[in-house]
Design a protein around this nucleic acid. Structure first.
Lengths: 188, 188
DNA sequence: CAAATAAGTCAACATGGCTGACATAAATTC
DNA sequence: GAATTTATGTCAGCCATGTTGACTTATTTG
């Protein structure tokens, strides 16, 4: 892995303007947009790292984390809700959910109104683990928001929110702790 | 999936202040930080969707995309470089790289100085596919940057960059088309 | 009561990670 | 020049997590 840095440091690409026929009036050059594409990959790659390491101590994976997280944040979530949030199939969910229930991270209760429903709740143990993982990820995010600069939280939130497929945005907004526009603490 | 919206819309959680003993001076409330954690999940989930769909038309997956992308962007990349960028094992890479080479998306040339090296280049066909996928993802990013607000590009870039594990940042910066601080077109 | 719905389950398969062990060719070092 | 290190490839197998399709059970609803 020796000299990847030295090799690459002198390889910054030519400006997009001298590439395909794109007017200079474009809001972003291709090179700038590619920067964001690549940053998203790297950011997400590392975003999940610490949590994955903790999870593996308990014989759990990222899939378990996602289920536990949303169940913990939304007590009483139905199985169908989780499927809709994660966009995975019932069978994929079944595998990880079964383990989470068998090992006591999540408990199921029949719905009071509709007894076909299995409402999901994090157990004390589940809450503790979910909280621990949340702490790791919140710490990383907090640090990154600081780097973004004070007063820029809402911009970052709007960016991430707009990355979501349009049809999904109302569901996501309903799931979030609060409206996307209210993520700024320092300024509006 | 009927009533997830109505169920959830009234479930916004109590402010973090009335939770564990955290001073009010904290730069971000827990709820706000969780918002970013969740937004990252949803944003990335959808970020990869369109590209995955195109890739599957060609019998390729996300792993192929990542290799092809970085090889296309950095012609002459060595196998060891790709491993270091993607943080996967040689055997994982071998599987997808073999297919990319066998099917003519990527070509290998022995290094001129060190003939043990297999320098990787995207073929014309590979460049075309990579470009097509880049276009999809750049379009999505451009739209999201617009939503973030003009002049906020650099903030978003700094946020994403700071999400990367510290030790990896110099390598990533070397790979990007330009310095992270130069992502703003409208203002500094 | 019939039909629709919520959830669970079985079987099989694909993708993309992983480990460990070993092979080959070329470069480097002694 | 022989020995070692390095860059890459490869075999074999395992694991996690996604997929499809078909079918069951309990319960609610029309």
């Amino acid at each position: 892995m020796a000299d990847i840095n030295s090799e690459l440091l002198n390889r910054h690409q030519a400006p997009a303007e001298q590439r395909a026929g794109r007017p200079a009036a474009a809001p972003q050059s291709d090179a700038q947009l590619i920067t964001f594409v690549e940053l998203l990959f790297f950011a997400y790659r590392d975003f999940t790292r610490e949590a994955d390491a903790v999870l593996s101590e308990f014989g759990l994976g990222r899939a378990h984390h996602r289920v536990l997280h949303f169940v913990n944040r939304h007590p009483g979530l139905r199985v169908a809700d989780v499927l809709d949030i994660l966009k995975i199939t019932k069978q994929s969910l079944a595998r990880v959910l079964k383990q989470l229930v068998d090992e006591g991270w999540i408990v199921q209760k029949a719905g009071a109104l509709d007894r076909r429903q299995r409402l999901l709740y994090a157990s004390e143990k589940g809450k503790a683990l979910s909280g621990r993982l949340d702490t790791l990820q919140m710490r990383r995010v907090a640090q990154a928001l600081e780097a973004a600069g004070p007063g820029n939280d809402a911009s970052v939130a709007r960016f991430l929110f707009a990355m979501i497929t349009e049809e999904e945005r109302t569901l996501v907004e309903a799931l979030l702790p609060g409206p996307v526009e209210a993520t700024a603490t320092h300024r509006k």
